[in-house]
């Protein structure tokens, strides 16, 4: 799931940020290089060389330095906005799922998904209630759906998708240990009832 508003804004900002070189990285000596490369410069070529020379000479003047600072500040602002949007990716009012834009925030879309998955679980459980031969398949399907639901809550509602990896390790370690331990227990042959 991704939010269209966020992607569009980020794409536009990325384009602007990339199109403007950092002022302190602007190459020098272009006027001289251009003049040397021209064997028989015409009036337009000469004008271009003069414009470049004037630009380079003016680069160290106070107005140009102020302009440099302005551009740098704008670039920093763009980067800051992009970081902010990346961190708060769940705050938009629309959600795009499989190419379709839903008029609800991501959190609400996840809630609808959780509700739909729960209903699906109950229907499958009721339909296959008496089908003893399909019990293993039923258990696998229901466990799979429950895992998807848990994943949605943990990754999106608990922000584990965006937060520190340390949180992920702290949470997943006992979960994996528990799953392995339970599967090991289930593999032990039953020795009788109660």
């Amino acid at each position: 799931m991704a939010e269209e508003e966020k992607n569009l804004t980020q794409d536009e900002l990325q384009e602007v940020a990339e199109s403007v070189p950092a002022p302190d990285e602007y190459p020098e000596g272009q006027a001289e290089a251009l003049a040397e490369s021209l064997d028989d410069p015409n009036v337009v070529d000469q004008a271009a060389v003069e414009v470049l020379k004037a630009t380079e000479q003016g680069a160290d003047t106070v107005p140009m330095q102020a302009f440099d600072k302005g551009v740098t500040a704008a670039q920093n602002t763009i980067e800051s906005v992009m970081d902010h949007q990346g961190h708060n990716a769940h705050h938009g009012e629309t959600t795009t799922v499989f190419g379709r834009t839903l008029p609800v925030p991501l959190y609400t879309a996840v809630f609808f998904a959780l509700g739909a998955l729960t209903l699906t679980e109950v229907i499958i459980a009721e339909v296959l209630k008496e089908a003893s031969s399909l019990e293993t398949i039923k258990i696998i399907i229901l466990t799979g759906i429950a895992s998807v639901k848990a994943f949605l809550v943990v990754s999106i509602y608990m922000h584990l998708k965006d937060d520190s990896r340390a949180y992920l390790v702290a949470f997943l370690t006992p979960v994996i240990m528990a799953i392995v331990a339970i599967l090991f227990l289930l593999s032990v042959p039953a020795t009788g009832g109660y």
């Binding site: 949470f171 370690t173 006992p174 979960v175 528990a178 331990a181 339970i182 227990l185 289930l186 039953a190």
Partner: peptide, 30 residues
Amino acid sequence: QKFAMWLYIASETILFSIFIGAYAVFRHSQ
């Protein structure tokens, strides 16, 4: 603080896993 909360959640995960494991074994055998 958030990391501490995640560690608490990890400990709770172990606790609930014990109950879940016990139920799973019961469900398997009964």
